[in-house]
Simulated scan of single mutants.
Amino acid sequence: MLEHRPQSGVLKRIESFGASTMLIQRTAMPSDGKAGLAVLSAHRLQSELSAQHGVPSDLHDGYGLALVSVWVGLVVWCDGERFWWLSGWDERRHRPVYAWHAALDIERAAHRIARRRQTLLSDHPLSPAIVELSSTTLSRE
């Protein structure tokens, strides 16, 4: 359930940089606070990945975070403000390298994550057994 908490209406006018103005739309805050916002953002990402990029995923949540499992080695974490995922390995420092994107820009984040999935798919394609299993399952439907 979403709780809408407007202060001065749905749209707020903000003046900045002299004469230019911007309109900012307020986002409805989930009633369970930041944890709910993480799930809401992750769900929006999951929907965008599926609708615009044909990327299936699973959504999990707990402890104030939400996880979108996209592919082997590609789990996107969300805290409601940003998404982050493993993008590589720093050989010199012996550490993982993470990419991140603001949760407000779902479309661009989904595009970057879909591109990362394509890279991983080319490096680690489906096994022949899984391809055969999925094709026989689809042919029965």
Rank of each mutant, 00 (worst) to 15 (best):
M1C: 01
L2S: 05
L2P: 01
E3M: 03
H4F: 14
P6N: 11
Q7R: 15
S8N: 12
G9N: 12
L11C: 06
L11I: 15
K12N: 05
K12M: 05
R13S: 06
I14P: 00
S16R: 15
G18E: 08
A19R: 11
M22I: 12
M22T: 15
M22Y: 08
L23G: 00
L23C: 01
R26N: 11
T27D: 14
M29H: 06
S31C: 04
D32T: 15
D32S: 05
D32Y: 07
G33T: 10
K34I: 14
A35M: 11
G36N: 07
S41D: 02
S41Q: 15
A42E: 00
A42M: 05
L45W: 09
L45A: 04
L45D: 03
L45Y: 09
S47K: 13
E48H: 10
S50A: 09
A51G: 01
A51R: 11
A51V: 14
A51C: 01
Q52L: 05
H53E: 04
G54A: 08
V55C: 09
S57Y: 07
D58N: 14
D58E: 13
H60E: 14
G62P: 03
L65S: 08
A66P: 10
A66V: 12
L67Y: 13
L67D: 02
L67E: 08
L67C: 06
W71C: 01
V72S: 06
G73Q: 06
L74E: 01
V75P: 00
V76K: 03
V76G: 04
W77D: 03
W77N: 08
W77G: 00
G80E: 02
E81N: 05
W85P: 00
W85H: 00
S87H: 10
G88H: 04
W89G: 00
W89I: 06
W89A: 02
E91T: 12
H94S: 14
L104C: 07
A110Q: 06
H111R: 11
H111L: 10
R112F: 10
A114H: 04
R116M: 14
T119M: 07
T119F: 09
T119W: 10
T119D: 04
L121N: 07
S122M: 12
D123T: 13
P125S: 09
P125V: 11
A129P: 02
A129C: 06
L133H: 05
S134H: 06
S135F: 08
T136I: 10
L138Y: 09
